[in-house]
C-alpha cells in the first residue's frame, strides 16, 4: 500500500446536490496502473465519486464540489481546468453501452476528430484498427465497419465503448458498472479485457457486484452513505476488513 504510485489523490472532497451532502470528507488515493474497485450499496455515492474524476458532475444542475482532486499532481476541482483535455486523459465507460447512432467507424472517429488526433484515411483506419484490437473486436468487425453500431450485441457495444475511450490514449479509464447490462459470460470476458488493459492504464471501476470487485480489482474502496469507509488491497478488504460496516457488507448482511 505505501509503496504504490498514486495517480489520483482526493483530499477533503465534499459534494452537494442542492442541500444533499452526497460525498463527505473523502480521502482517497488511486494507485497507478492497477484496478481499483468502488463498492457499496446503491446510493452510497460511488458513481458520484467516480464522476468527480472527469468532472461529469458538472452536467448536473445545483452540484457543488469542495476540496481537492489531483491527477498527476494537477488540480481537477478548479474552474480553470481544461475539461476537454481532462476528459481525454480520463476516459469514461458508462453503465449501459451508449454507442452513438452512427457506424462503428464513425463511433471511433468522433473522438479522434474532436481532439484532432490523426488525419489521413490510412492513418485513421490504422488507429481504428489498433483501438478495436485492444478490445478484441477487430477480427469480428473488420468487414463491417460501416454498419450501425447499435446493431451489435450489448457486449460488442460495451467493448466498442471501451475502444472509443482507449483510442484517445487516456491515462485513466473510469468504468461505471460496465457489466450491469451484460450476461455472465460477456461479463467475464469484459473482466478479462480489463485485466489486460491495466498494464497500460489506471482503472477505476464502480460495481455493485462484490464478486466482480473481488475477481478483477487490486484495490477496493468500500463506501457507505457518502463516506469512504475503508480502502485497501482487495485481498485485505475482503479477507480481513478493518471496519465493522465493511465486514457486514461483504458478508452480505446488508446491501
Amino acid at each position: 500500500m505505501d509503496q504504490m504510485a498514486v495517480k489520483i489523490r482526493a483530499k477533503d472532497l465534499n459534494l452537494f446536490y442542492g442541500d444533499f451532502h452526497a460525498l463527505q470528507d473523502i480521502q482517497f488515493s488511486v494507485p497507478e496502473k492497477a484496478i481499483t474497485a468502488l463498492i457499496g450499496p446503491s446510493g452510497c455515492g460511488k458513481s458520484t465519486l467516480l464522476r468527480c474524476f472527469n468532472r461529469m458532475n458538472d452536467l448536473v444542475e445545483n452540484c457543488r464540489i469542495t476540496g481537492s482532486i489531483r491527477i498527476d499532481g494537477q488540480e481537477v476541482v478548479d474552474d480553470r481546468t481544461d475539461l476537454i483535455a481532462l476528459r481525454k486523459k480520463v476516459g469514461m465507460v458508462f453503465q449501459r453501452p451508449n454507442v452513438f447512432d452512427l457506424s462503428i467507424y464513425n463511433n471511433l472517429l468522433f473522438g479522434l476528430r474532436i481532439h484532432r488526433m490523426v488525419s489521413g484515411k490510412d492513418r485513421i483506419l490504422a488507429t481504428i484498427r489498433w483501438g478495436l484490437e485492444q478490445v478484441g473486436l477487430w477480427d469480428e468487425l473488420k468487414d463491417r465497419l460501416n454498419q450501425n453500431a447499435r446493431t451489435l450485441t450489448l457486449e460488442q457495444q460495451q467493448r466498442l465503448c471501451i475502444a472509443r475511450v482507449v483510442i484517445l490514449r487516456p491515462e485513466v479509464i473510469l468504468l461505471d458498472e460496465p457489466c450491469s447490462a451484460l450476461d455472465p459470460i460477456a461479463t467475464m470476458r469484459i473482466e478479462e479485457l480489463l485485466r489486460e488493459l491495466k498494464r497500460d492504464y489506471t482503472i477505476v471501476i464502480v460495481t455493485h457486484n462484490m464478486q466482480q470487485a473481488a475477481r478483477v480489482s487490486d484495490y477496493t474502496g468500500f463506501m457507505y452513505l457518502g463516506r469512504l469507509i475503508e480502502f485497501g488491497t482487495t485481498s485485505q478488504v475482503f479477507t480481513n476488513p478493518r471496519d465493522r460496516l465493511t465486514e457486514n457488507y461483504i458478508s452480505g448482511q446488508f446491501g
Binding site: 476537454i84 476516459g91 458508462f94 451508449n98 452513438f100 474532436i114
Partner: peptide
C-alpha cells in the same frame, strides 16, 4: 435524442457544439 449519447460525447471530451453538431443532429 437519448441523453446517453450526450453523456458519451461529453465523456470523450466533446464541447457542447461538437456534441450538438456531430451527435445530436445526425441522431
Amino acid at each position: 435524442v437519448p441523453k446517453a449519447f450526450k453523456e458519451a460525447a461529453y465523456g470523450l471530451g466533446a464541447t457542447r457544439w461538437q456534441t450538438l453538431w456531430r451527435i445530436c443532429l445526425p441522431a
